[in-house]
């Protein structure tokens, strides 16, 4: 299955990510976000970072999950290569996501070609189709 597709957007970054489950679609959205800044497939999976976020709804959960990619990059120099063990739990009025990011430290070895400034809710869609899930996101660049 195609992991994600980068869509045309005049000013910013836009993509649709796919998965048989919503966990898989979220994981692929993480990689799609990374793909706008570096080639995630070229990054060695040397370090792991546990990720845990909460959201009032699935949209906020996705927003905060993707924000982790930016946060870890900007504050820990962490380049995402692999998203593993995604779980999404629904509580009362809250969604909880856990995952493990694998990747490497930026430090001259990899080209960083883009800057995603922020995740946005603009045109965000989380959809369930007959053959799985699709999420659509626009990020500010």
């Amino acid at each position: 299955m195609e992991r994600y597709r980068i869509l045309p957007h005049v000013a910013d970054g836009k993509f649709r990510a796919f998965g048989a489950t919503r966990e898989e679609a979220f994981a692929n959205a993480g990689l799609a976000t990374a793909s706008l800044m570096w080639d995630w497939w070229a990054i060695k999976a040397l370090r792991s970072v546990p990720v845990a976020v909460e959201g009032r709804d699935l949209e906020q959960l996705l927003y905060r999950f993707l924000e982790e990619v930016l946060y870890l990059f900007e504050t820990k120099n962490f380049l995402l290569a692999v998203v593993e063990d995604v779980s999404i739990e629904e509580g009362e009025d809250v969604f909880r996501l856990k995952a493990v990011f694998w990747g490497d430290e930026a430090g001259g070895r990899y080209e960083i070609f883009g800057a995603v400034k922020a995740v946005t809710y603009n045109e965000m869609k989380i959809e369930r189709g007959c053959d799985g899930w699709a999420v659509q996101v626009v990020v500010d660049m």
């Binding site: 949209e59 927003y63 924000e67 400034k117 922020a118 995740v119 809710y121 603009n122 965000m124 500010d140």
Partner: peptide, 25 residues
């Protein structure tokens, strides 16, 4: 600055809800 914007978009959502907006942003 990007984080301040994100933080307040979410804080305002929590405080005021998003149902009546044509666009969440």
């Amino acid at each position: 600055g990007h984080q301040v914007a994100s933080d307040y978009i979410q804080a305002m959502e929590s405080a005021f809800g998003v149902r009546d907006l044509p666009d969440r942003e």
